[in-house]
């Protein structure tokens, strides 16, 4: 099979996945037994309010038509309006998405290279002191919830030492240093967990490659150590490492939701948690679609990269 056709096939599969995700998001938010409007309003339901909500959610129409309408608007870039305050979601989310992207990108930029280096170091010296140190500390880190790390960091750096703000208020900051001060704690809290997961998976992926026959052969034919690792092992390790990175973006997304709430960070994650609390269905749907599509797209990218790295795909028989 031609490599291009393989990639096109994967892209098609990705679009399909996003579609399935959209169905799940839609169905998931509307699987309420009985009437959504009553459930949302709870005890304070008056007939007028119920009618109002039913009209705004378009509940008088059948579900599949509502789904198609919702999907159509999504594709046109219209996220709808909030159920609680009637705000235009494009504005509300647009205002905050930059902050979330900033948080995610800074975290990834720190965590990804660092964890790959840690994983490589550990895997080339299994059972050595440094491997044990890395393995045990990453194990401890993946075991504690990220909000605990956040709590500890806040109590140390914000409360006890007073060096950094406990609340990430991005409205009144300007200048790089200010930004860095505000971002420091959320990014640190996020990086720890993501890094720990990624370093551990990198270690086992690379160890797998290093114990394979081709690597033993390279050693036996006299290739110097650094060259064995860079020229012989790395091309075979790219695909697993890329997959490790993609897989860990799931932890990053979970982390973002928690950490944004914890630090009152003005991002989409906290917005979504607020949406869940107030049961603002359109808001949750929109935020979920943004997070999930990003995740699917990044996974797709990883998939394509590992395809390209595979010599059997690049050089078919």
């Amino acid at each position: 099979m031609n490599i291009l056709s393989v990639i096109v096939q994967r892209l098609g599969l990705g679009i399909l996945t996003v579609l399935i995700v959209s169905i799940l998001v839609f169905v998931g938010t509307e699987i309420l037994p009985g009437d959504v409007a009553y459930a949302i309003l709870g005890q304070g339901a008056t007939p007028e309010l119920v009618a109002n909500i039913q009209e705004r959610l378009g509940l008088d129409e059948p579900a599949h038509l509502r789904y198609l309408a919702w999907l159509g608007e999504l594709l046109r870039g219209d996220l709808g309006t909030s159920l609680t305050n009637g705000a235009v979601l494009n504005d509300v989310i647009g205002e905050r998405i930059g902050n979330t992207v900033l948080l995610a990108v800074v975290t990834a930029a720190i965590a990804v290279p660092l964890s790959i280096v840690l994983g490589l170091v550990a895997s080339t010296r299994p059972d050595s002191a440094i491997d044990r140190l890395i393995s045990t500390s990453t194990l401890a880190l993946i075991s504690v919830p990220d909000f605990l790390i956040a709590v500890l960091l806040v109590s140390l750096f914000a409360v006890q030492l007073g060096w950094l703000p406990a609340i990430a208020n991005l409205n009144r900051v300007d200048g790089f240093l200010e930004y860095a001060r505000v971002l420091a704690l959320p990014v640190a809290a996020l990086s720890f967990t993501v890094m720990a997961h990624m370093a551990r998976m990198t270690r086992s992926a690379v160890l797998n490659v290093l114990t394979s026959s081709p690597i033993e052969m390279a050693i036996l034919k006299g290739v110097p150590k650094w060259r064995v690792i860079l020229v012989h092992a790395l091309p075979n390790a790219i695909a697993p490492i890329v997959n490790v990175i993609a897989l860990n973006l799931a932890y990053l997304i979970t982390g973002i939701v928690v950490i944004e709430s914890m630090f009152n960070f003005p991002g989409v994650g906290r917005l979504m948690v607020e949406g869940v609390t107030t049961r603002d269905i359109p808001l949750v749907q929109a935020a979920a679609m943004i997070f999930c599509s990003t995740y699917v797209v990044l996974n797709l990218a990883a998939d394509i990269i590992s395809l390209i790295a595979n010599p059997r795909v690049r050089h078919p028989k």
Binding site: T17, I20, V21, L24, V25, G28, T29, E30, I31, L32, V36, A250, I253, T254, V257, M272, V273, G275, V276, R279, D280, I281, V284, Q285, A288, F291, C292, Y295, V296, N299
Partner: peptide, 18 residues
């Protein structure tokens, strides 16, 4: 398809509804 969902998203969606 379900794993293509970050777990927390699925949880948040269902919690919104129920």
């Amino acid at each position: 398809a379900l794993i293509a969902f970050p777990a927390i998203m699925l949880a948040l969606i269902v919690l919104t509804a129920l």
